[in-house]
Each structure stands twice: as C-alpha cells, then as structure tokens.
C-alpha cells in the first residue's frame, strides 16, 4: 500500500514540476526557442483574429452568431485563387472577390435575414448553420472539392524568411515574411474598421442598430441597408483571411473548420469588441504554441488543439462578457 502511495506522489511531483518548473529551465537553456515560439504564437493569433473579426462585425450589428463565417472565408479565398488561375491580374481578382462577397451579402439579407426579422437569436443562428451547409455544397459545385494552392507570387505576397537576433540569443530566430505581411495588413484593417465604427455616421448607425434595432428603425436608420453593409464588410475581411490562411497551407474547404478556432478567441476578447478580437487572438495563439512546446512532455501531443478552449472556459467563469466585451449595463 505504502509503495503505491509513494508512486502516486512521485508521479504528482513529476507532473507538476513538468508543468510549472521544467519549462523555465528549458527557456534558460534555449532562449531563442522561446522567442521563436512567441513569434509563431503571435502570427497564429493574427490569423485567428482575422476570422474572429468577421464574427464580431456581424454579431455587433445584427446580434447573429454567424456560423457561416468560416465557409465565407473559404469562399472568398477560393474566388481569388480561381480568378487568378483564370488569368485575371491579382488586383482585379481581389476586386472580383469583393464583388462576389457583396453579392453574397445582398442575397443573404434578402433570402435569410429579411424573412426572419425580429426572430430570436437562436433561430437566426440555426439559419446560419443552414447557410454554412448550403455554401459548402454550392462552393464545391463552383470551385471543385480539391484544395488549391494560393499563387503567392501573383499576389505579390513575400514568402521568404528573415533571421534576426542571432548575436543576442546564440541562435538566430526565423520570422516568415508571410506572417509579417498578415500582421501588417491585419493591423491596418483593424485600424480602419475602428475608425469607421467610431468616427463615421454609418459606423455610428451600425452601433446603434447593434444596441436597439427598433429604436434605430424609429429614427430612420434603414436596417436592411445596414445589414447588407455589415455582411459585405465581413465578406471583405473574409477575403483577406482566406488568402492569408490559404497561403500558409492551401485554400480548400477544410479551412472552414478553422473557423471554430475563432470561438475561444471571441469568448476571450468579447463578442462585441474589435480590438478584443485581435488581443484575444494573440493571447490564444501564443498560449497554444507555448503549451504545445513546453507541456508536450507531460501532457502529450496535441495540447494546441484544446488549450485555447480551456483558456476561454476560465475567462468565461470570471468575465462572461470577455476581456473587452461591452459592459452589461444593469439598472437598479
């Protein structure tokens, strides 16, 4: 009996030190690895944020959790790729994808949102699940089911790597130019969206609709126009996300599943906050990569798969509106 107790005890000690002590030794041994992982985490986080951003826009303006956001990313990415494959210049291909996404926004407003106006959020959510299935089938008819490589050269996305900090850390750290581009464009896009929401008349109207759509209607804000606008905007964000995700691996329908990775990001950052999507994405991205590398020894492979959800769960217990979500205003 005593021997078994001792076994359990040593195992516990090993496990806990594996979780909370060993990683620090590992960092001390190879500081360059830590920096490398942090950079990888941030760039993964930017990618998650790009998808989360589309969710936030639609959730803010119409209170709909858009399950179809992932497939919209695939749709947008494939539109660009197919147009370039057909010999259209890159700029025009992107413009073409913008048109595709705007047409899609009009169609969704007309066929899905309008008949369901004033229904519960859960009904609209179900409708977007249906929409996701429809778009997946429809997309495979148009684009074919096979994943396609993104023509990085035609889009003029740099895909080399830069080595930095070699002198300081002993071994150089690699940064992929693709990640840098994604981060740069992502930051630009977020800045543009924040300015649009806070400084323009239409942005203000959009936030008004998010708060109280009946009242917005009563002061003469046309809900349909706002909805088309916000779905178009989410579509345009999706083009960027689709191209960047596609450039990392391939543009194909399996990418739609990645949209689920945006869920913990949304819970962490808050469903209604644009900066929240970015910061949430970064935290989840970095957390996952750190966990994957330093906890692999004690937890086994695949830490990356679930750690984000655990982080989200903990946040949910402490702050249900997320780190940056709108305050839940209670009047007493």
């Amino acid at each position: 009996m005593e021997a078994v107790g001792l076994d359990v005890l040593t195992w516990m000690v090993d496990f806990l030190s594996g979780l909370f002590v060993d990683p620090f030794f590992a960092v001390a041994r190879r500081p360059d690895k830590l920096v490398q992982i942090l950079i990888q985490g941030v760039s993964a986080g930017v990618m998650y944020s790009l998808i989360a951003l589309g969710f936030v826009l639609i959730f803010k303006a119409s209170g709909v959790f858009n399950f179809a956001q992932g497939i919209m990313v695939v749709f947008a990415g494939l539109s660009v790729v197919v147009l370039i494959e057909a010999g259209v210049p890159a700029i025009l291909a992107i413009a073409g994808a913008v048109v595709v996404m705007i047409v899609m926004a009009f169609a969704i407003e007309r066929l899905v949102l309008r008949p369901l106006v004033n229904q519960d959020g859960i009904i609209l959510f179900m409708a977007t699940i249906g929409l996701a299935f429809f778009l997946e089938g429809f997309g495979q008819i148009i684009f074919g089911a096979d994943p396609k490589p993104v023509p990085v050269d035609a889009l003029m996305i740099p895909d080399g790597k830069i080595k930095v900090l070699g002198g300081l850390l002993g071994k150089p750290v690699r940064i992929y130019e693709l990640d840098l581009t994604a981060a740069g464009f992502g930051a630009l896009m977020v800045a543009a969206i924040i300015v649009f929401l806070n400084r323009t008349k239409i942005g203000r109207a959009l936030r008004a609709v998010a708060d109280d759509n009946q009242a917005a209607l009563s002061v003469g804000i046309p809900l349909r126009t706002i909805w088309v606008l916000v779905w178009s905007l989410a579509g345009i964000v999706a083009i960027f996300a689709g191209v960047m995700w596609g450039a990392q691996s391939q543009a194909g329908f399996s990418l739609a599943v990645l949209a689920l990775k945006a869920l913990p990001v949304l819970i962490l950052g808050g469903f209604t906050s644009v900066p929240g999507a970015i910061i949430g994405g970064t935290i989840i991205g970095v957390g996952e990569k750190l966990g994957e590398f330093y906890w692999r020894g004690v937890m086994g492979d695949g830490v990356e798969q679930w750690l984000g959800y655990v982080i989200a769960l903990i946040v949910l217990l402490v702050r249900p509106q997320g780190l940056f979500g709108e305050k839940i205003i209670e009047r007493i």
Binding site: K201, R204, A205, R207, A208, A210, D211, D212, Q214, A215, A216, S218, V219, G220, I221, E326, K327, I329
Partner: peptide, 26 residues
C-alpha cells in the same frame, strides 16, 4: 414625422451626444 418610442429606447452603449447624432441620420 418621427416617433419617440415608449420606454425611451436610448442606445445604451453610445454616449448621449452620439445618441443625439444618430437622430440626424437622414
């Protein structure tokens, strides 16, 4: 012709000034 709805219906997460400005949307 504009209606002021029962129960105020202000936009809670907008400031008072932003609320007023949404009235000028048209």
């Amino acid at each position: 012709i504009i209606q002021v709805m029962e129960g105020r219906h202000c936009f809670e997460h907008l400031t008072i000034e932003e609320n007023l400005l949404t009235g000028a949307y048209t």
